[in-house]
Nucleic acid binder design. Structure first.
Lengths: 211, 211
DNA sequence: TAGATTGTTAATCGATTAACAATC
DNA sequence: TAGATTGTTAATCGATTAACAATC
């Protein structure tokens, strides 16, 4: 169960398992088999079993896996029960969308506040507060924030990133499509919409060529 | 250069190469070596060379790769010169953010219009038009749209997806965090923010444990 | 017992890296 | 020629799949 030994691919599958396990109707009984899950998600059944073995202490031959147990195990493996506080810089449309998105709590992240250079965007009335970016460091220190989300335009991303690092932030979720340079020990995860989009377009191209 | 033989990982690296190649200052000369690119992006130099070999017709021993040629080659490989038209359903904050995002054109996608059930969100005045979702099929047929983007809440995603398939759409970019069921021949790409976020949180956890 | 299902060990496959050859 | 760099072939590594054993 060493975190470093968990592959990216597995980490991507776990939330999908979770979603599926939760969506299964109650009348299907308390148990669920790896084959059922596999075919529902289009995966190999051995893979599903191996994945489950990594995060839980196993199913029951002949009956399958106890669904609610599996859900708890996956959630605790992913740490969905203890939340991580985060801040977001760049309260434009994308930033606002992420600030307001209620689903993140379910994934164990609590966005405490947004920040923006544009004072016009700052407000504290309803929903999550948005403060001037000048307050970022003080806020992070005060609340012990270790995670930052960058939703500013590409040109400003590096500056914002530097500010976050200065404020003690350790992991950064970067939605700007630029490569960020950070000191050692800081992790940047790029939300690479360009790559995603490109992949999808390649599929489309492949499909058109087939016809 | 068969599209099907291109790995997901390569497709994710190509936009990064592009970004880096474009960002290199002019005074660094016309040529660039695989080792330079590799160290800038934290990749192996052999990997970079192999990647370049797949998309362009090669560099020059001793001098390196001609930068502008490489840029053109990657862009044409990714099809950034001919754009794909798309529609978006769900004009909430995330939807609006994606509708308004100017960067997509650079990646070869042109979002023609948004759609929403909520008439209140519909408008055609400024920016991209947003129409009632009832017009989706007609619009897609009329403009030969093959790509759809889903930015509605999870509960409505499957219904929207079905509507898109009925409208002749072949590839779907899904931002709702549910697994969509589609007929054969339709490709769904899930923008899995949950997985991304989870991965980042695991990094943070690993880091805290190290200390 | 027979059968369904989990769990494990070995084989395959693909991507990355290492070592070396080719080129200008 | 010597040296820098690309290009290629072989080795490694990790993830997935296949085959089989274990269990209830």
């Amino acid at each position: 169960m060493e975190i470093n030994k968990v592959s990216k691919a597995l980490l991507a599958r776990l939330p999908r398992y979770l979603e599926h396990l939760k969506a299964v109707p109650m009348e299907n009984g308390d148990y669920i088999s790896s084959a059922t899950v596999a075919s529902a998600l289009g995966l190999g059944h051995v893979l599903v079993r191996k994945d489950f073995a990594k995060v839980s202490d196993g199913g029951h031959p002949k009956t399958g896996y106890l669904r609610r147990e599996l859900i708890v195990d996956i959630e605790s493996f992913l740490g969905y029960n203890n939340t991580t506080d985060a801040v977001l810089v760049g309260a434009g449309r994308l930033g606002q969308a992420l600030l307001d998105y209620p689903g993140f709590e379910g994934y164990g992240m609590n966005v405490r506040a947004g920040f923006d250079v544009n004072e016009y965007l700052c407000h504290t009335a309803e929903g999550k507060p948005v403060y001037p970016v000048s307050e970022l460091e003080r806020f992070c220190r005060e609340h012990g924030i270790l995670m930052g989300i960058i939703t500013v335009p590409a040109e400003q991303a590096q500056k914002v990133c530097d500010g976050m690092v200065a404020a003690g932030i350790k992991v950064i979720w970067n939605f700007a499509s630029v490569h960020l340079t950070v000191p050692g020990g800081i992790v940047v995860q790029n939300e690479n919409l360009a790559a995603s989009l490109t992949e999808l377009r390649m599929h489309l191209r492949a499909q058109l060529h087939e016809i």
